[in-house]
């Protein structure tokens, strides 16, 4: 490919490469696999860059390529097993805190909990989500993307994004609460159980 095309590609890629890696990391749950996935997606995007319309959303285009590559590899490896999960009630953490007698102090108990959970624990909670929720939730939490953009990346209707995010957030709250219990985190003086 000519130099100008490469320079244009590099200019588009540079602002979104960190996001692409963080997204890939949540999909693959492993740093080396995430770098492989980003590399495959970037090379694929470069090979088809002549089809990309300048001025349109490069980020969404690249993330769509990356998502499709991930899902295709999963199918090929026959590991795309549907994970069974129970429906989780709304406001799971708020209910659990109420059950445990955790009350509003001078600080919002949700903020206290989130401050006590580290980056690795948040990642571990997201990693428990089944693929369809993990893709939507990762895009949602990593970027201020509107639902419409997430729909474009995942190539699903906006209503599907809304539904996956709502259910994914509930599952995530349950996973976060269970991590907090396992770590023995206390909030406003009370112990979780």
């Amino acid at each position: 490919m000519d130099q100008t095309l490469r320079e244009r590609f590099d200019r588009e890629l540079e602002p979104v490469v960190d996001l692409a890696y963080r997204y890939a990391l949540r999909l693959t749950r492993d740093s080396e696999s995430a770098m492989d996935l980003v590399q495959d997606a970037v090379v694929l995007a470069y090979r088809h860059f002549e089809n990309f319309t300048p001025g349109t959303n490069f980020k969404a285009w690249l993330l769509r390529i990356l998502t499709n590559k991930f899902l295709k590899d999963r199918q090929r490896a026959a590991r795309a097993v549907q994970v069974a999960f129970d429906e989780v009630e709304e406001a799971y953490i708020a209910r659990k805190m109420l059950e445990n007698g955790i009350e509003e102090d001078d600080q919002n108990p949700a903020s206290v909990l989130m401050n006590k959970l580290g980056v690795e624990e948040i990642a571990a909670a997201i990693d428990t989500l089944p693929d369809e929720f993990r893709t939507a939730c990762s895009l949602y939490f990593l970027e201020e993307s509107p639902y419409q953009e997430i729909a474009e990346v995942l190539e699903v209707p906006i209503g599907t994004v809304r539904s996956r995010l709502h259910r994914g957030r509930r599952l995530l709250q349950k996973a976060l609460w269970e991590l907090a219990v396992a770590k023995g985190i206390t909030i406003n003086g009370a112990v979780n159980a």
Binding site: R22, M35, Q39, P109, A110, L113, M114, L117, V119
Partner: peptide, 30 residues
């Protein structure tokens, strides 16, 4: 309460380290 959880997750997710070698590796692949 719900907004604090969402904000907390967003903040932590965006702090995840990106390996330094990624950029060079992508350059070589391209």
């Amino acid at each position: 309460f719900e907004a604090a959880i969402v904000d907390g997750i967003k903040e932590k997710m965006r702090k995840m380290q990106v390996p330094q070698e990624l950029s060079a590796r992508l350059g070589r692949a391209l």
